[in-house]
Design a binder for these strands. Structure first.
Ligand SMILES: [Zn+2]
Length: 723
DNA sequence: GCAAGGTC
């Protein structure tokens, strides 16, 4: 991943292929500098215990402040100012004050209207919107605590956002000249103590990279959002909130593309062979594993032949017992996935509940990607506390017997630079709602399962072939749970048991039933919120804290709607992607994130400066905006049609979209083409005529929506098919 | 009012 300095951002991004997007999945660790573990550099460090005077330590959140205070002293003095807790620790020659932020307290803001806009400044978040009111008391408290200190220590999480959070507080309320950085990758006592003995000077490269990320996202997001809104205002006079951004727009594009595929899908008929065999008086259905047969005629011939032969031959029989390892403790994505699978909770709902459980001190930090439990954690202590909860009492006493007190959890491969996997703290829950309890229960059980023994499964599988044609392969399998192991603690992954008798290699097995079964090719998968979130994770956009939220933004903008748990793009969503793909293609691609990451990495390495990167972004956007503005009225019209504000004079006869060809919009026109094109294949397979073809696909459930709409209106369209 | 990113 290299950026050629002379190329523009556009060239760079457009040269990025989809293949590279995929490669990112593998290369995740090396390309994501968002959370960084810095290599040891030879630098002068300061020991907090050698500093004299007033030392203000700034943590990222109240819980972290508490842990830091306890790592620095056995009994820090807990105080509170404007309702915000802080801690005082006396040293030989000074006084340490551990204070806390609450994530970002400042954000970028402009008082300028319209676009292009490149003038912005950092302002308290509570002044920017009516949200984030809670940040006001944090700022007031910090401003008070920071006055006249001799040292300021940024002890926020050691990632670029933490660097920015601490930097801005010191910038506004302290003195950057008197600042130090504490660097730790977990909030454990040992690591915290070590980091405060080795305070470094302020991490300017990280700060610069972080500030740059904020500015780039702001410049791209605000300008394009405003351009979209302004075009609608120009064309229809209406005000509507529209938005685009580095994370939300590629996500929307992903859904739009999937949805278009589904709506243009025409299933093809195919034939499968349905066969039952008999063994030891058991009748067993065997699954056809060969290539689908395309025509009924061929399928009938084969079945007739098979019936005449009367038996299948065992090609391979395998019997094995295997161990099923327990799953690791949850990271946020895994929890969201399981809550969706088991309880149909949206990722956003799961996350909100988990955050509440965390604030109630019932579970550890939930916004983590880690599947690893910290070895320093007192597992036994947590279990003892948990066993005071009735539901877990017996499970835990069992677990302690089963493990003979040796508590060693499985660890998953995924990691996080600042937080471990999610685990219960052992604090006894009070007054949990039904859904809160469900999430809490998943977390506890998954935690317990991580210590349990493996499950033992016995598995039998048989492959049979039709002796006259070995490509005709059939399969049946059986499964039995021999030892429950961890499944006892986490029963949500219980494999289904099924009996299968033993077979011998080469054995001839009698066929009791043979028929053909008509099936259809499968449509593209339905899209759900959790699938969208997993996709974002896989391509590496958004963070644990933002993915679910950004998906909801797409719903709030009415780019998406939910139809019985399934996600669909709206006409507006389609329109937004059409417009952005043409005028701001960069913002629709995940490679913009890769580009940001590359630039930030260079800033961190000191080979590029923030102002250079921002200047490039500005120049790129100015060019794009110029070409957008040339077509602004027309773009505004298009979006207004999709919003239902205006009706196109040249309207598609099947929807409110503007006509593209033959009085059809581009989607219905494409549907018509697909119908005509697919006919040949249907004719070949089924020997159907045109009318029969249409009536057949119209009835099928998986046939795309646009396809059906076109068929239903063939008279209106005046399309007649010439053979 | 618009982004994405923290956290209450
Ligand atoms: Zn149409």
């Amino acid at each position: 991943m290299k950026v050629k300095a002379k190329k523009s951002i556009i060239d760079y991004i457009l040269s990025y292929s989809k293949k590279q997007e995929k490669e990112h999945v593998k290369a995740e660790e090396k390309t994501l500098p968002r959370k960084v573990t810095e290599k040891a550099k030879i630098k002068i460090t300061r020991n907090i215990w050698d500093l004299t005077g007033k030392i203000v330590v700034i943590a990222e959140k109240p819980k972290a402040a508490n842990k830091i205070a306890l790592a620095l002293s056995k009994n820090p003095i807990r105080k509170s100012i404007y309702g915000i807790p802080y801690y005082m620790i006396k040293t030989k020659n000074g006084l340490i004050i551990v204070a806390s932020a609450a994530g970002h307290l400042y954000g970028l803001h402009t008082d300028q209207y319209g676009y292009p806009v490149f003038r912005y400044e950092w302002k308290p978040l509570y002044q920017i919107g009516h949200k984030a009111k809670h940040t006001k008391k944090f700022i007031t408290a910090l401003s008070k605590l920071c006055s006249n200190a001799d040292y300021y220590v940024n002890a926020c999480d050691y990632d670029i956002e933490g660097s920015v959070i601490g930097y801005l507080i010191i910038y506004f309320h302290g003195d950057l000249e008197k600042s130090l950085r504490a660097k730790f990758s977990s909030l454990t006592i040992g690591e915290l103590r070590e980091s405060f003995r080795k305070l470094t000077s302020l991490d300017w490269e990280m700060i610069e990279a972080g500030l740059c990320r904020h500015e780039l996202d702001w410049i791209w997001g605000i300008n394009i959002s405003r351009a979209l809104m302004s075009s609608v205002k120009m064309a229809s006079g209406k005000r509507v909130i529209l938005s685009a951004g580095r994370v939300q727009t590629p996500t929307l594009r992903y859904i739009v593309e999937k949805d278009i595929e589904r709506r243009l899908f025409i299933p093809l008929p195919q034939y499968s062979l349905s066969i039952n065999i008999s063994k030891n008086n058991y009748e067993i259905h065997v699954e056809y594993k060969g290539k689908a047969v395309e025509t009924k005629k061929k399928a009938k011939e084969i079945i007739k032949d098979i019936k005449n032969t009367g038996y299948l031959t065992v090609k391979k029989y395998e019997e094995k017992k295997y161990w099923l390892n327990p799953p690791p403790a949850f990271n946020l994505g895994d929890l969201q996935e399981e809550a969706a699978r088991i309880y149909r909770f949206s990722p956003y709902k799961t996350q909100s509940i988990a955050e509440k459980l965390y604030l109630d001190a019932l579970i550890s930090y939930p916004r983590t990607n880690s599947q690893k439990l910290p070895p320093t954690l007192n597992y036994k202590g947590i279990m003892n506390k948990l066993s005071r909860i009735n539901n877990y009492k017996e499970l835990i006493s069992n677990l302690l017997v089963e493990t003979r007190g040796v508590l060693k959890p499985v660890q998953g491969p995924k990691d996080d630079p600042a937080h471990p996997a999610i685990y219960p703290t052992g604090v006894k829950p009070k007054d949990l709602g039904k859904d809160e309890w469900k999430i809490y229960d998943l977390i506890v059980r998954r935690f317990l399962a991580a210590f349990a023994s493996r499950a033992r499964i016995s598995h039998r599988i048989v492959y049979l072939e039709y002796p006259k044609d070995p490509s005709m392969v059939f399969m049946a399998s059986g499964r039995k749970i021999l030892e429950l192991g961890w499944l006892r603690y986490y029963p949500f992954s219980m494999p289904e048991e099924r009996f299968l008798p033993r077979f011998q290699h080469g054995e001839k097995v009698k066929i009791t039933k043979a028929s053909i079964r008509k099936t259809y090719t499968k449509p593209p998968e339905k899209i759900s919120r959790i699938k969208i979130l997993r996709w974002m994770e896989n391509v590496g956009i958004g963070t644990e804290a933002t993915r679910a939220r950004i998906i909801e933004i797409l719903f709030n903008r009415k780019y998406l709607r939910s139809v019985g748990g399934r996600v669909e793009a709206t006409d507006l969503g389609l329109g937004i992607i059409e417009v952005l793909m043409e005028y701001f293609p960069e913002i629709t691609s995940v490679s913009l994130t890769r580009y940001f990451e590359g630039e930030m990495e260079k800033i961190r390495l000191g080979i590029r400066r923030r102002d250079e990167v921002v200047r490039d972004a500005k120049n790129t956007l100015i060019k794009l905006i110029v070409s957008f503005d040339k077509k602004k009225y027309q773009i505004g019209k298009t979006l207004s049609y999709r919003l239902g504000y205006l009706t196109p004079t040249n309207k598609c006869m099947l929807c409110n979209r503007e006509a593209y060809k033959n009085n059809l919009c581009k989607y219905h026109y494409q549907a018509l083409n697909t119908i005509v094109k697919t006919y040949e294949e249907w004719k070949r397979r089924e020997g159907v005529d045109w009318d029969k073809y249409l009536s057949s696909i119209k009835k099928l459930k998986s046939t795309g929506k646009w396809i059906v709409e076109v068929i239903q209106n063939f008279e209106k369209i005046k399309y007649s098919h010439s053979k």
